[in-house]
Design a protein around this nucleic acid. Sequence first.
DNA 1: TCTGGGGTCCTAGGACCC
DNA 2: TCTGGGGTCCTAGGACCC
Length: 436
Amino acid sequence: MGRGYLHNSQGRIMRIFALIDCNNFYASCERLFRPALKNSPVVVLSNNDGCVIARSQEAKDVGVPMAAPAFKYKDFFLKNNVHVFSSNYALYGDLSQRVASTLYTFTPEMEVYSIDESFLEFPEHKADELLKIGMEIRNKVFKWTGIPVSVGFGPTKTLAKAANRFAKKENRTNGVFSLCKGVDIDELLDKVPVTDVWGIGRRHGKKLIDRQVTTARLFKDLPDLWIKKNMAVTGLHTALELRGTPCFSLEDAPPPKKTISTSRSFGRPVSALPELEESVAAYVSRAAEKLRGQNSLAGGVMVYLTTNRHNTQPQYSNTATRMFPVATDYTPEIISAAIKGIRSIYKEGYKFKKTKVVLLELSHKYNRQANLLELDDKAGKEKKKSLMKLLDTANKRFGRQTLNYASEGISQLWKMNRNFKSPDYTTNWHELPEIK
DNA sequence: TCTGGGGTCCTAGGACCC
DNA sequence: TCTGGGGTCCTAGGACCC
């Protein structure tokens, strides 16, 4: 949890948060290894090559909207010479770590918030040199990783986010902007649409706009009671943060996940149960790997299947949950429970679009609750443990898919499309870039 | 034909107990 | 059998984030 607020007799000490955000991150990553695309429009598609999830500035300029469905924009891409990539998370994850370790050289007071954003916190006495620090951050990250970033400073995380937005949108800021000192915050928040505020999403945004509350400034001046009633305490925290009172601190050691899920849309509609079972087995494998990666055990597994909500064919979706007698991280046991689950909800005659697996009630493996019925089979347990370890090590070293369970299927015809994937330049020996 | 995936938090309301 | 209040626990659904 947080570090609490700092107070002294003179009043609150100003805290200084910085939000560093990689510009058009996935598009920037793809361009790093294709310098020829430096000034060209580039877009990155979601899994399954479904819709646009990242756009270079040039792509924004020619008018590609966020979340544009790729199939509708095929001609548009051709006509405007837009370069299209499938998403390549191995590449983005690796570059993300490089950016994070560069930021860490500025201060250990750091929270990696997402794949392309980090919060830093600086002591109050730095308040007069923030723009200089911001420029140093930008320059160093670009020099060391090739990724352009924007830097926003503010007395709360929410204001640092808003500052970052100015850094990115206004050319004259040179990518660095501060709301900490020497600016009229209210005047600037007048310019921020309420839906751009961190913590206000589409639904609440619409509700606010319907009541003429269109800007961050108008929102933060609403009565607390109204906010609490209509937007719960989370909404109130957002308002307080806009007023300069920190409600969120850095989270330095992200707590282990409480649920772990894996799901993918299929590359084509799937009706046959055996194929659905294969997909479920494959997703369990992946989820169980993540589970062991954070040293957790799962108390249960939920499976989900659904048809394609976007078409007009008959719809069906359902979930099934199976609990384990004793929490486990043993892939075959989870697969078999998940397959029983999918069989119990499967119905013939539908075209399914997606299955999903969620591992539930995670606990740490070292304070595992024993079960009275459990047999004391030490040798068997050791064997399972070393098998899982072997599996994870091999897949990590030689690439996922090195060792698979037969139940995951061999041909995997249901697998998602990734027709425009770039090579794994930085994480796979066979795909290192060549210099001519 | 083709529109992502992986999380967290909060609240209302039902079930159940005394 | 009916009445009422108060408390806890659980779940589904809604909302948000990247």
